[in-house]
Design a protein around this nucleic acid. Structure first.
Lengths: 281, 281
DNA sequence: ACAAAAGTGTTCCCGCTACACCCATGA
DNA sequence: TCATGGGTGTAGCGGGAACACTTTTGT
């Protein structure tokens, strides 16, 4: 392998890899343990892996993997996600590509194409921590390798903004949910209280929630109506090409079920949910 | 160099490069020539380069270049931009990273980290087309190589959304401008008419425009007040690390003046204006 | 019957739209 | 003095925030 001299190595292209920020809703009340002050609402958790080599050996880092020329970036991200955590995300979207020379801190210069994923609560709850993979709550992260701390912050920002004009919130829950559950998700992400009455009206007014007819009892009081996310947006499947954010390019492997999921309207910015199999706005 | 067998090549990492979508406001009325129907408002133009090799030889493509391990992605994007067009963008932001295996169409599998840039009108107007570099209007693009057409579409989408909560519009003009000029930009990007009276009020109400005291005559009637973009947002320069979207990591080279520019509030999505030298929001 | 959660009503305010209007300037 | 563009006024609509209220259920 080895490159020639220093200047050759400098003008050479850097290494490239994929990393994933995986987010899931934590259990409702882990705060009775006294660790967190008194979190009124739930929190987001994410799995991290322990580094076994320098630099940052022993620190925690985002799950990651390599790129392969015969796979899409999304597939590579998915592979990285699955290989370390065996989770099935309900949402997966490119976040940003990081490539600053000094982010490697002594390692090889590295360009990281970072994705972020949402996993539904139940699946995350079933996951057992191992020696080298452990879940951490958003507000109590350990020492992180490289610039991963900032990357996570950025992913959370993206989530916070995206919740306002897309269906990401529902991806942290199962396919059906009560308005209170959804409300909890919004509060967890926003980090502040939201008027329940107005929230409920706004959600129902959006027209994207369909009453399943079921009732579900969350606490031990009156059961709540159960809804499903079903956007009315007719889905315009027109000029989209593969590899383009709006168009998913379906996995070749058949991992990731949880597929026949809602489309959503891209009100504002960028990439949509590539996990969705059909093209969308 | 050559790789071994097919499967080795498949699992090998793909090539990586940078491309840039460069946008500038076109001249006010190129429509008298009869080419375009009767464009009420200005249009966006972008420079493209002609490909001189297969695949897509002879087609037009986005300006691009290589990555170097000793340069940030932004610097590489800037270099690519400057080497082909010698322009000085007033805005530069990462757009998306494309890496689908089949986007190469017979060439080597290629991951493209795409940036988009805004150039001020006057500079773009001064630019002379060459044999291999030519400006095209948004609504009359030629045959494009690879998935570049879709990439451009995506960049335009991003611009359209970003105009609503950031200062990108001003980056298509000089450092100072009249409200009418700004209005034109908005119409060009939105592609539709916007009530001037309300527009003016909204802009002024935002508090980000400062009256310079000057007057400027655009047509040959009453001169208009000249404004400067000066966001009030106090700029929180806190925990930002280099390589992270919000933090610019200033060019090592000193190209790109046009630097002491406004910060803006990141209302919604993702990367801010990395051209801005000071950290923001 | 009481507590807790589900779900509804009502009021106020603010921002955006539409469109009418007045003012400054040069030909 | 008239045309053109700069700039202001105003009435109405609609969505969100605040918060009081009713209904359903389990203990």
């Amino acid at each position: 392998m080895g490159f020639g001299n220093v200047s050759e190595r400098r003008s050479a292209p850097p290494q490239v890899g994929v990393s994933v920020v995986i987010l899931a809703l934590g259990p409702r009340d882990a705060d009775d343990t006294g660790t967190t002050p008194n979190a009124a609402h739930s929190q987001l958790w994410m799995p991290l892996v322990k580094r076994v080599r320098q630099p940052f050996m022993g620190s925690w880092a985002l799950p990651g993997g390599h790129l392969r020329a015969d796979r899409s970036l999304e597939q590579s991200a998915f592979a990285a996600l699955e290989s370390t955590t065996a989770l099935h995300p309900r949402y997966l979207e490119q976040l940003y590509t990081f490539g600053d020379p000094d982010r490697s801190h002594g390692g090889l210069p590295m360009v990281s194409i970072v994705y972020w994923a949402l996993v539904e609560q139940s699946e995350a709850a079933a996951f057992e921590d191992g020696d080298n993979v452990r879940w951490f709550p958003e507000h109590d992260l350990p020492q992180l390798a490289f610039d991963h701390r900032a990357i996570i912050e950025y992913a959370l920002e993206r989530l916070r903004s995206k919740i306002e004009y897309s269906d990401v919130a529902t991806r942290l829950l199962g396919p059906t949910f009560t308005l209170r559950q959804l409300h909890d998700v919004y509060e967890a992400i926003a980090g502040q209280s939201i008027d329940l009455a107005n929230f409920r009206r706004k959600m129902l007014a959006s027209g994207d929630l369909e009453d399943t007819g079921e009732k579900r009892r969350e606490g031990r009081q009156r059961p709540a109506a159960v809804y499903r996310y079903v956007p009315k947006e007719p889905v315009n499947d027109t000029v989209q090409r593969s590899g383009i954010p709006g168009s998913p390019s379906a996995y070749s492997g058949n991992h990731t079920v949880a597929s026949l999921e809602p489309r959503h309207n891209a009100a504002h910015d960028d990439a949509l949910a590539p996990l969705t199999p059909s093209a969308q706005r």
